[in-house]
Amino acid sequence: MEELDKSCEYLSGVCPVWCPGCGYYGILSALVEAFADLKLPTKELTLVSGIGCSSRLPYFVKAYGFHSIHGRGLPIAQGVKTANPELTVLAVGGDGDGLAIGGGHLPHVARNNVDITYLLFNNAIYGMTKGQFSPTTTLYPVTKTSPFGLAGEAINPSALAIVYGATFVARGFSVKKEHLKELIIQGIHHRGFSFIEVLASCSSFNTTDMNVARIVKNLEMIPEDHNPEDAIEALRLAADQEKIRLGVFVRNQRPTLGDKFQEMRRKAKGKGAANMEALLGQFA
């Protein structure tokens, strides 16, 4: 009971607008429970999102929230973390938001190793706009904008994040709340860019791809002995067509964007005094 109360402190009181049966409710509770476990002060908690049903999440959490525009949560989060490295910064968004319209940003926050945690809600459909296919739609090819089937192959979000060089890549499932909570905790603890793909069913527009029964039947946890520094093996696991692997694919360390900025400041200071007078000197 006490546990429950703690996590409720992270709810804003705004009632979620999601449909009954939406997988996102599970993600919201895993998230606030993770915050409660970590005892994160709400004043330092920052949630940035794009546009979509998933991107509505920040309204429901007691934190500093930035609900922005479609596909742009990641660069905004990068800016927030850059200006105030003390903050715990999370970005959330949908599969369309992060892989279609905003797909150009993911490789760059990953290679910059921006120290934020990104939850990509994969429901394999455009929920907000009511049922058009997304870049991850696979088993439900006949959508409102693909009445005669899909033109393209689906993207595998976790595999993509691994190839882009994200330093933490994991996959969770909205129904496996405890497991998801653990992933979120690990992601927040990780120093660097943490990418967490969360499978969640859309009860209104695609109950096939993320069908709970189907996922439960096919899921398999990543073996305990998997070495998360082995990116090739991680890719093999993430891209597995037979089984849906859950857990941490990749975890490794390298300097974050913030570390690099510190290094640049240090090098630059070696090249001249830090005041306007000195800067103006070069124009005299």
């Binding site: 922005s68 742009r72 660069p75 990068q78 150009g104 760059h108 090249k271």
Partner: peptide, 25 residues
Amino acid sequence: PKMGGVVLQTEDEISAICSVAGASW
């Protein structure tokens, strides 16, 4: 960087202005 600031070349102008939005907020 001498003044403690940072400059980042982003992947496009959308990322640039969005990063500005985040940093400014």
